[in-house]
Nucleic acid binder design. Structure first.
Lengths: 353, 353
DNA sequence: TTGAAAGCGCTAACAC
DNA sequence: GTGTTAGCGCTTTCAA
């Protein structure tokens, strides 16, 4: 007695409806599934029988035949992170409008978990993938998705050497602008903090595991270099997840850094707390800027100057692109880049002294 | 040529692997699926062939036979809301550990969308449902889920007249405590604000559409009544989504209210902004307290006194319960209630004057 | 327009 | 331990 969970009842099938309506299974299926040709009379009769019996179509059986599941797999770093919450919502709305549902998996930014997620989605025969890749330099975990032939759209990050559609924000320009603001205010000792993992000290030209962080670091060090700051790479602090933002900020303050650029709002939040606990005044003692217009950044005292990204739209656009690919759009690979917008608030001041 | 998307290739099946390994389909399936009895030699041979051919199991076909899809449907109000982000993450982790994936749908707190979501999940033959019901007084949209015989666990809210498991926080006690704090500080004109929809003015005994908000209002008015405040129900402001928190707060200030209890952190955030824009000092002119320890509440100036809920744990526990039910646990319906914990900060002061 | 029959990829008896 | 044979619930030829 398969196809039924623990409880006793058997699901109503097309056969049951067909029998009740006194037509063949094929005809009942046509009437129920809205395809092929069915006379109006028969159609109504079948529908009535279905209603009467409480028929619920089995989408899985349909998928077995058509090869289409009407589901999209989405792999995010962590759905609890507001960034992914917003992107997922944007994607969900577009997907739903196009008749797709989302199967959601968290990767925790780990390649292993990501590969696992892809494999689960592959087994469930999703029609396409939406992923914020954990590693954009070694996107091996994405290969199975690519090889499956099902469309894959990357969002928030691009991946090296993978010919797939991507939807990201202009992190390079955003980082440049934020850094310029700090430099113009007179800062020279500016630190960049990110949670991204990286072996050893950061050196100019190193490729970071996330293309977006990579672009941010590149923009940051470039502007610093142009401003005549020697060894700008020495101001890049990575591995903040492992080492702790708190510890990093403390040592930065000791080292006399006068400004901090946080790579995301979670890092900024931790840095803000540490500075406050340390009694270091923002922006009088240390200036602080960040990416993402998280809600707290406009509520804190002082409010934080941020580079805002159209997160919702990035998710939505990625889904739109994916839906088009699923529909068979064979246009060349697209790489969409959304502009970021600066929101100036009160967290920048000239360096002290 | 079914079972394959737009592109040309055909998926590798158990039959292909069986042929390559020169065994029967059944044996290949046993080796691949890790069930039944297979000799080690054959098992290795089959696995090697599978690897070689690039075999990926079709979970859907498996579901057709076993009746188990290893997916759980989760219906939340809005995944962009931090509350649901956290609860979903809690649920996702437990689900994954038990071998289940999540199919995520947003209801926007509308019964229609919720019913739709349930029907989609039913068609996809999820093994169980996790839902934060849009309406707990008229849970009609949940009936199809209940009738399907597949387990359903409600979280954050209970539903009237539905014999299903629920996992919620103790909103009544939480609201009482928060209100007591305000009363003890000397407040008498205290307003309660929620986005929940309600026809006409709130009257004592009205059942609100969300059991959690209902409990909060009940606790709030009870404490006010015990403190001798006449007509406490007059201080309950609902429909804030429709009318706007901003407009409500402005009129409240005009009416000389000296304290506000926000039903959730999103309402609190909007209220905080309005008070700030109005130049009304918190807590000197108006005290403000809220539910949920959202990150901004400890970063704002002043930091907000809140009633914190174990959101992550609520999601996790709901998933744990559901997984047990799916496994066939026939124990009586459970109603889990988690305590809320008060976090005192600086947003309460005696009323002015 | 309708029906009969085959088949999607897998599991589950049952026999050997 | 292995193979044979039926299905799961649907769609899809192909005839009638």
């Amino acid at each position: 007695m398969p196809a039924d969970p623990a409880n006793g009842r058997r699901e109503i099938t097309v056969s049951d409806v067909a029998a009740a309506a006194k037509v063949s299974k094929a005809t009942a299926a046509r009437a129920l599934g809205d395809y092929g040709a069915v006379s109006e009379a028969v159609r109504d009769r079948v529908r009535a029988a279905a209603e009467q019996l409480g028929y619920h179509p089995n989408a899985l059986a349909k998928t077995m035949n058509t090869g289409r599941s009407n589901s999209i797999g989405i792999v995010v770093g962590d759905i609890e992170n507001p960034f992914f919450g917003q992107a997922t919502r944007g994607a969900a709305d577009v997907a739903k409008a196009a008749g797709f549902d989302l199967i959601l998996l968290n990767s925790d930014e780990e390649a292993g978990a990501e590969e696992n997620a892809i494999s689960v989605l592959l087994a469930k025969r999703v029609d396409g993938f939406l992923v914020a890749p954990a590693s954009t330099t070694v996107p091996a975990s994405l290969h199975p998705a690519v090889e499956s032939g099902r469309p894959l759209v990357l969002f928030d990050r691009v991946a090296d050497g993978l010919d797939v559609d991507t939807v990201v924000a202009d992190n390079l320009a955003g980082a440049r602008r934020l850094t310029e603001l700090l430099v113009e205010a007179g800062h020279r000792r500016i630190a960049f903090i990110s949670t991204i993992g990286h072996e050893g000290d950061y050196r100019l030209g190193d490729r970071l595991g996330s293309s977006s962080v990579n672009d941010r670091v590149t923009g940051f060090t470039a502007v610093l270099g142009e401003a005549g700051v020697p060894n700008p790479e020495a101001f890049v602090r990575l591995n903040a997840r492992r080492d702790g933002v708190d510890a990093i900020v403390r040592s930065l303050v000791d080292e006399g850094v006068t400004a901090i650029l946080a790579s995301d709002s979670l890092v900024a939040q931790a840095a803000f707390r540490t500075l406050r606990d340390l009694g270091v005044a923002i922006p009088r003692d240390v200036s602080l800027v960040a990416f993402d217009d998280a809600d707290w950044t406009s509520l804190s005292d002082p409010a934080i100057t941020v580079m805002s990204q159209p997160i919702h739209e990035i998710g939505a656009e990625a889904a739109r692109l994916l839906v088009r690919r699923i529909a068979g759009d064979g246009a060349p690979t697209e790489h969409l880049v959304f502009p970021q917008v600066l929101i100036e608030r009160e967290s920048i001041a000239p360096p002290p002294g």
